[in-house]
Design a protein around this nucleic acid. Structure first.
Length: 353
DNA sequence: TAACCGTGGGC
DNA sequence: TGCCCAAGGTT
């Protein structure tokens, strides 16, 4: 029963090395009969999609303070939730978070489903997140495969097939190892192992509870696994952004459409982004073009934004956007790109809050 | 299927 | 500095 022995050795390691995380029940507490709150597990898992633990912690604490239950979140204003998510990225997650909370309240009496299919049907919950919630919150033996698990399995079995082709084989390897006992702790244990020992670069094999059975360690290939297909280069796109300040201190902003990049977020009016996009100011004014441009890199392109600033008198209706009073405008509610634009603009406007 | 969708930290 | 990477989902 080799697989049983491997789950066993990993769980023993987890019992003494589990990370202390705000959304987590310690292995000791779980052994004593405590159960994690599915709402908190769901919220943390969505925040952790493609996002580091270090980045998520403060957002998680803020969200659970503002909205302690899924019903509280479901009743929140869209704009406030988007504003609180600002800076975390992948904003479709926040839009789906609200959709999901409202479905759980409306269709499930405020309780998260406890089946894989029930979870999988909710907005923003895919194969990984459904399995993670079922395993961690409901202690069901589902196979949880994220980037950590893929890396650990590729090394444990010395699998050289590049991702994403190797995904199926890695999932099958993970399935063979998943124990019927303590599946929730096991899922978190593999992720802790990947995050602290079996790291992408310079894995600490000497400290690993799986150093004996690890095929890549024996072969000396751990450092190079998992293999991945080469990435396509990012093109450079250009654009223009306009920051207008009214005499009474209000700022001209716009709510971006729900679909597409930075969907649903607050931003400065501007041009499309491309080779050399046409650009028209959102309001008539004596615009000043700044020398420095805002540079930002998204998942699939680099962006260089030319920033224009202007003071405008009271009483001029804008052609685009809406004026937000200085008291109502919180720069922390801007996505990072728009924050960069604001930081350049306010220096030019000599604005200190 | 593959493109799209953010951000900050590490090296 | 530029590239890699992180508890993926949707279309």
């Amino acid at each position: 029963m080799r697989y049983f022995a491997e789950a066993e050795s990993l769980l023993a390691w987890y019992d003494t090395h589990a990370r202390d995380l705000p959304w987590r029940i310690s292995p000791a507490a779980r052994a004593a009969g405590a159960h994690p709150d599915p709402y908190r597990i769901w919220l943390s898992e969505v925040m952790l999609q493609q996002t580091t633990v270090a980045a998520v912690k403060s957002y998680f604490l803020r969200f659970t303070t503002l909205w302690p239950t899924v019903a509280d979140l479901a009743a929140a204003e869209d704009a406030q939730v988007m504003g609180e998510w600002a800076g975390l990225g992948y904003y479709a997650r926040a839009r789906n978070l609200l959709k999901c909370a409202r479905v759980v309240v409306r269709d499930h009496g405020g309780r998260f489903p406890d089946t894989l299919d029930g979870l999988r049907a909710l907005p923003g919950i895919g194969p990984y997140t459904a399995a993670a919630i079922a395993a961690i919150a409901h202690d069901q033996p589902h196979v949880v495969v994220d980037g950590n698990v893929e890396r650990v399995m590729a090394r444990l079995y010395d699998i050289h097939t590049p991702l994403p082709t190797a995904k199926r084989a890695l999932t099958e390897a993970a399935a063979r190892l998943t124990p019927r006992l303590r599946p929730g702790d096991y899922a978190q244990a593999v992720m802790d192992l990947g995050a602290t020992i079996c790291t992408p670069k310079s894995p600490a094999c000497g400290l690993c509870p799986w150093r004996a059975p690890c095929a890549a360690r024996a072969a000396g290939t751990a450092q190079h696994l998992p293999r991945k297909l080469p990435k396509t280069p990012k093109p450079v796109r250009h654009g223009h952004a306009y920051v207008a300040r009214r005499a009474d201190g209000a700022w001209l902003l716009e709510r971006r459409p729900d679909s597409g990049l930075l969907g649903g977020m607050l931003g400065w009016p501007g041009s499309d982004w491309g080779e050399s996009p046409l650009h028209t100011p959102p309001i008539a004014a004596d615009w000043q073009q700044l020398e420095a441009e805002a540079r930002h890199t998204f998942t699939h392109f680099h962006l260089r934004l030319t920033v224009h600033v202007a003071f405008v008198p009271d009483g001029v209706p804008p052609e685009r956007g809406m004026f937000l009073s200085d008291a109502a405008f919180r720069p922390t509610e801007l996505p990072t790109l728009m924050r960069k634009v604001f930081d350049l603009a306010r220096a030019a406007l000599n604005y200190t809050p």
